[in-house]
């Protein structure tokens, strides 16, 4: 009787260990199947290249560049904005970064940004993504991460 109980306990233990192992390997496979957006974008170097192209597009864009004059006038301020944008995109794409900047509401408060200006800036980002041949799926995924921020940025 005792032997039987022991046998069934060890059988149950074996089954649960096997199930756990199968479960784990299944998870790993799934992770390998779908790399994060960060990986698909090409990691931190690719993101910083996109951010630089995005920034030059914005500063050359006469529809919105007056809003960035104070930033461009101070190279440390430009540096800080660049670092924050890199971290924000990296973190939003599931990369190993933490965004240390202000919340979008706080960062854009009182700037009077309109929907037209917001769309112009998004257009500059799309141009930067296209310049770097980012595929449509990844481009849309990134825009879907940033799009909902509109409510905190636009004031019209």
């Amino acid at each position: 009787m005792k032997k039987n109980v022991l046998r069934s306990i060890s059988a149950m233990l074996m089954i649960s260990v096997c199930t756990a192992m199968i479960g784990c390997s299944d998870d790993d496979e799934k992770k390998e199947e779908t790399p994060t957006l960060y990986t698909r974008l090409g990691g931190i170097d690719a993101i910083s290249t996109v951010v630089d192209d995005f920034l030059t597009n914005v500063v050359a864009d006469t529809e919105i560049n007056d809003k960035f004059e104070a930033t461009v006038a101070d190279s440390y301020r430009t540096q800080l904005l660049r670092a924050n944008l890199i971290d924000q995109i990296c973190a939003g794409a599931g990369g190993p970064c933490s965004y240390k900047g202000k919340s979008m509401k706080e960062a854009h408060a009182g700037m009077g940004i309109s929907t037209v200006e917001f769309n112009a800036l998004v257009g500059d980002l799309v141009k930067a993504l296209d310049k770097n041949s980012v595929p449509t799926a990844e481009k849309n995924e990134l825009l879907a991460v940033l799009g909902p921020m509109k409510a905190d940025i636009v004031e019209d």
Binding site: S48, V59, C97, S98
Partner: peptide, 14 residues
């Protein structure tokens, strides 16, 4: 330092 802060610093001119 964040990943963004670790990037080599650049100059931007308009």
């Amino acid at each position: 330092r964040s990943e963004g802060e670790k990037q080599k610093s650049v100059e931007l001119t308009s």
